[in-house]
Computed example of a mutant assay.
Amino acid sequence: MNLLDAVAVFAAGVAAGGINTVVGSGSLITFPTLLALGYVPVVANVSNNIGLVPGGVTGAYGYRNELKGQRERLLRLGSASVTGSIAGGLLLLGLPAGAFQVIVPALIVIALVLVIAQPRLQGWMLRRREGEEHHPHGGPWLWAGVLLAGVYGGYFGAAQGIVLIAMLGIALDDDLQRANAAKNVLSAVVNGTAAVLFIALWIFSGTRIDWWAVLLIAAGSTVGGLIGARVGRRIPPLVLRGVIVIVGVVAIINLLA
């Protein structure tokens, strides 16, 4: 990797860290950058996943005020993220690289529809819950949805934030910024769990990781996560919903190109 390549990977990491914190799908910047530089897809995916972990941590830290009061909720949902991420990471190393080429764009489309319809769907669900037991953590259906999002995140991860925020926004009786804060934590848990798995496999079975790419993306995403938190927390819910939709549409175009 020459100096120009290193600058490109670092810049991609900054952009990915910021986009992941505000919306999600930052991998659609870093992953194609690594591919363009000649990395094998699985190596690029694994290295990218590990490198984005610090950005997830700084992004979640930037939303610490919105995370107040969500500790028990995140512990419950985090168990689903950990379980799903391990399964997804194992799938990445065991399945053909193109296995999700059809599923991923379809999943993003569904998530975008849910984001657009979130206020109405949330209101409808709250009306249906009247008189029923209140689930401050979203109930078993949200746990199952977070588990599946974790599988997807451990496998590839691009736009997992869009999927998560769509589910959290609908299932939780909370505002969109607090749902986004929870999304940042759960995304970081997924990436962190997959990273631990990949590093363990690198130690014990020789799974390939490009550590220069990891370090550059990690440095960039750390900065990007802090910037993204400062920007994202100031975006009104309606504008944030619009940003999510725009980024999601761009993600679909890139995946289908």
Rank of each mutant, 00 (worst) to 15 (best):
G62S: 08
P96N: 12
G59N: 07
S79M: 10
Q101L: 05
F100G: 01
T83S: 08
G88Q: 05
A87E: 01
E72Y: 05
L95C: 11
V102N: 00
E66T: 12
A80T: 13
A60N: 06
S85G: 13
L93G: 12
T83L: 06
R64V: 11
F100Q: 02
L92H: 06
L93Y: 06
I86A: 02
G94F: 02
A99V: 15
A80W: 00
L75A: 08
R64P: 07
G69Q: 14
R76P: 01
L90P: 01
V102Q: 00
L92G: 10
L95I: 14
R76W: 03
S85D: 09
A99N: 02
T83A: 09
L95P: 10
G62T: 14
G89T: 14
G84E: 03
N65L: 02
Q70W: 05
G94M: 09
L75E: 10
G62N: 08
E72L: 09
R71W: 11
L92K: 07
A97E: 12
L67V: 13
G59L: 04
L77I: 11
S85K: 07
S81P: 09
I86F: 01
L67D: 10
R73P: 01
G78S: 09
G59C: 05
I86N: 01
G88S: 06
E66F: 09
I86C: 00
E72S: 13
R71T: 15
V102M: 00
L77V: 11
G84R: 03
G98I: 00
I86K: 00
Q70I: 12
L91M: 14
E72F: 04
A97T: 15
A80R: 08
F100N: 03
E72R: 13
V102G: 00
F100R: 00
L74Y: 07
R71N: 12
P96F: 07
L93I: 15
L93R: 13
A87S: 05
F100D: 03
R64A: 04
S79F: 03
L92Y: 04
Q70P: 06
Q101K: 11
A99K: 00
L75H: 08
P96I: 15
L75W: 09
Y61Q: 08
L95V: 15
L74R: 10
S85Q: 08
A99E: 03
A60Y: 03
L93C: 12
Y61N: 08
L74S: 10
R64Y: 03
P96S: 13
S81I: 02
I86G: 02
R76S: 04
